[in-house]
Design a protein around this nucleic acid. Structure first.
Lengths: 124, 124
DNA sequence: CTGGATCCGATTTGATACTG
DNA sequence: CAGTATCAAATCGGATCCAG
């Protein structure tokens, strides 16, 4: 497998490169929500359970810097900022769907019953 | 999105669950090498650049515990241990290929030229 | 409302030494 | 040859405070 540098970091293969762009706990959930709608910061914050202010801002910054989402600032008070997905981000959506389907299959394989999921939600 | 517990850890969606099983820096490279061959510990170690002894053993342990690879120990001196992929692991290979193809596409999109890759290898 | 900065604990990982 | 244990460094993430 080839290896290469990007932003002073050494990557060993294309999988690692891809996961560094859209992996981690929060980037896919963020992209997923933007796939067919524009959302404000506060909307994303409310819609993604458990994400902290720090993580949402930092992950949005990275996704923006690498061209997966677009940030539009309105010069109003109080501030209004809208996030939307870019063509590059849209291409990621296709993969995210594949990973999601695999994850659902894996959950079944591990005996995780979706019908029990909502019950456990109450305990969290 | 549903959320659920597995091994006392809270997951927010199927993507996160999948990535916790086969994500991280090393699990996919390991599975990838085992996709069509049985390999000994030392062979994997030699074949995966930069992986440390500790990471290879710990990641193999986890993959084994979760049923993605099978570990076969021969009662000989010196020790001989063979790792092979399981049906569950084979299913992951399909996804890994999808992620890999996406990664290659993304590298082009970011202007990372594969022809330059081998040159940079010398500098690592 | 959005977002940057800081502190600090938790988790992850690398290096090293040791074992059968 | 394969694997375990330990310690230290690095990274990550949460809580909190301040700002336009």
């Amino acid at each position: 497998m080839p290896e290469f540098l990007y932003n002073n970091k050494l990557y060993y293969n294309p999988v690692e490169f891809a996961m560094d762009r859209i992996g981690g706990t929060w980037k896919m959930p963020i992209l997923w929500r933007l796939k067919d709608q524009v959302m404000r910061y506060g909307e994303l914050k409310k819609d993604i359970p458990h994400i902290t202010h720090k993580m949402l801002t930092s992950q949005l910054r990275e996704l923006e810097e690498e061209g997966f989402v677009k940030r539009k600032v309105y010069a109003v008070v109080p501030p209004k900022v809208e996030y939307s997905i870019t063509p590059r981000g849209q291409k990621a959506i296709v993969l995210i769907e594949a990973i999601r389907n695999y994850g659902l299959h894996l959950m079944k394989d591990f005996g995780i019953d979706e019908s029990k999921v909502r019950q456990q939600k109450k305990n969290s």
